[in-house]
Nucleic acid binder design. Structure first.
Lengths: 162, 162
DNA sequence: GTTTCCCTTAAAGTTAACTTTAAATTTTAA
DNA sequence: TTAAAATTTAAAGTTAACTTTAAGGGAAAC
């Protein structure tokens, strides 16, 4: 099964110029061309795109993903380096998830806060609520948030891959 | 307790020029100035910075955060809009966490794959492994990944906040 | 056949969030 | 009192990842 760039764009949701940009940056070295120089994508190319999007989501930059593809092309001598790349990225993503969970705690607290503000008619009224009126769950959240530092909601993703 | 911009930079890890940039963009309207025009941060300003970093981590842009601060300054008439903002962002972050968990599944699989490749000496050997040699956990992961679309590891964070 | 898509490239433009620079002023330490 | 360190501003520069534009070529619908 062969696909044009338009087919792939529709299948993946990535704009065709983005796919051409990825190709230009060396992220799609396996995509063949037809007579008139027209790209013919295969199912394996769609799998590559899925991996590329995953690596991007994990915080890797285009040039780092190209680095991985270059290593792949070099073959089995680069297994160690590729392995390290995935372990490093896994660690980054685990930290990102933790950071996002802190962010989610803050947002959950704020959602409760503004639910109450809407109910009581003012922000001040919520601030003046006695502790006994605040659900246990929210009190714990508030305490956790107060222990947080600025850096606990920041991402660590950017790492020199290699 | 009052802090200079240098103190705050050290406390938060944010470079002083970044703090000035936030101020210029209207994110720090509560920071007072001394005689010579020098910023005097208070503990409440540090709390604002913590909220700002959380909102940034949730995917909000600077201008959206400014919008929130403007709404805050306007007072209780904007409670509904602020509430909606937090609910929208909460939803975004929940989706981001799900996407990152898909990314993590892919990376976990790849880590196993390259552990095996290192052990067996080649990528091909891992591809040729009979199903019976693949741990149940990894087989499930592989099946899950095969069901994934490109979009399942993409972030949804960017939303017109309002 | 021709018109209309869809494809191609190269190159310029966009955007957000800083970051750097330069020049001036203020504060702090000796 | 003076020198060093930190602060101020405005403005220009940077970076990544696209996105848009322009100019052209080949295949399918009518």
């Amino acid at each position: 099964m062969l696909y044009t760039i338009g087919d792939v764009s529709e299948k993946t949701g990535l704009p065709a110029p983005t796919l051409r940009y990825y190709d230009k940056e060396g992220l799609l070295p396996f995509v063949n061309r037809g007579n008139g120089g027209i790209r013919k994508f295969q199912d394996t190319d769609l799998e590559w795109l899925r991996l590329i999007e995953c690596l991007k989501a994990s915080g890797l930059q285009i040039k780092d993903i190209k680095r991985y593809i270059d290593l792949f092309i070099q073959g089995d001598t680069t297994i160690q380096e590729r392995r390290k790349m995935f372990y490093d990225q896994k660690e980054c993503v685990e930290e990102d998830i933790k950071a996002l969970q802190n962010t989610l705690d803050m947002l959950t607290y704020k959602c409760w806060f503004y639910d109450m503000a809407l109910e009581l008619g003012s922000v001040e009224a919520v601030k003046n609520l006695p502790d006994s009126e605040i659900p246990e769950k929210i009190r714990k959240l508030k305490a956790k948030i107060n222990r947080m530092h600025v850096s606990s909601c920041q991402k660590k993703s950017i790492v020199k891959a290699g």
